[in-house]
């Protein structure tokens, strides 16, 4: 019945995205080598990008690949190799007794609750947004235009705040990762 109403292509795209996302996510949490986990994370991110394109969020799909897969995962890989922790972790050892069972129960309850909420309740009315005056979301270049307009008008303050946030993050990361010897010698220089 569903197959008759919706185009076969969109179902195929959804199944592809879902497979990429879920296989990648399970890989992240089961693989023993952190490098393999990071590569598996890239697979999930590509799946999410496919889902974004399928839903008309073209700009975000590009950002997902460029920023997430291109920058964040590379940062992960850099740290893994910088620290030399790319050896296998003993995933079968369970230091806390029953940790996995409790985690599984908690996760099943959470996901079950989310899906039940989705199926049973009407917490979204389905009414179209008033801010866009009923104009449907576009894809392609128009999507970039719409998102740009929203970010630089409605969400301008939040956008400026992210600039501050990024500066703080960069300064914090440099401070945290700096060696202490450099700090001490600098203090000596200041005192002298």
């Amino acid at each position: 019945m569903i197959g008759a109403t919706y185009a076969l292509a969109s179902i195929l795209v959804f199944v592809t995205a879902a497979l990429l996302i879920l296989v990648g996510a399970v890989g992240v949490i089961t693989l023993k080598n952190p490098v393999h986990s990071a590569l598996s994370l890239i697979m999930t991110l590509f799946g999410v990008a496919v889902a974004f394109v399928a839903q008309g969020a073209d700009f975000l799909a590009a950002v997902e690949i460029i920023v997430y897969a291109g920058a964040i995962v590379v940062l992960f890989l850099f740290v893994i190799m910088f620290l030399g922790v790319d050896r296998k972790e003993h995933v079968h050892v369970e230091p806390l007794v029953g940790q996995r069972a409790f985690a599984a129960v908690g996760v099943v309850v959470t996901v079950g609750g989310l899906i039940t909420l989705m199926a049973r309740s009407h917490w979204v009315t389905g009414a179209m947004s008033v801010s866009t005056k009923g104009v449907a979301l576009a894809s392609g270049q128009d999507n970039v235009k719409q998102l740009g307009t929203a970010v630089f008008t409605t969400y301008l303050f939040a956008f400026e705040a992210t600039a501050v946030l990024l500066v703080i993050a960069v300064v914090g990361a440099v401070l945290l990762a700096r060696r202490e010897r450099a700090l001490q010698s600098e203090e000596v220089e200041v005192e002298a």
Binding site: N143, L147, V151
Partner: peptide
């Protein structure tokens, strides 16, 4: 997509 509101995509940004 379902509510046709660009605010969701801005939040993702």
């Amino acid at each position: 997509r379902t509510l046709s509101d660009i605010g969701g995509q801005a939040s993702v940004f």
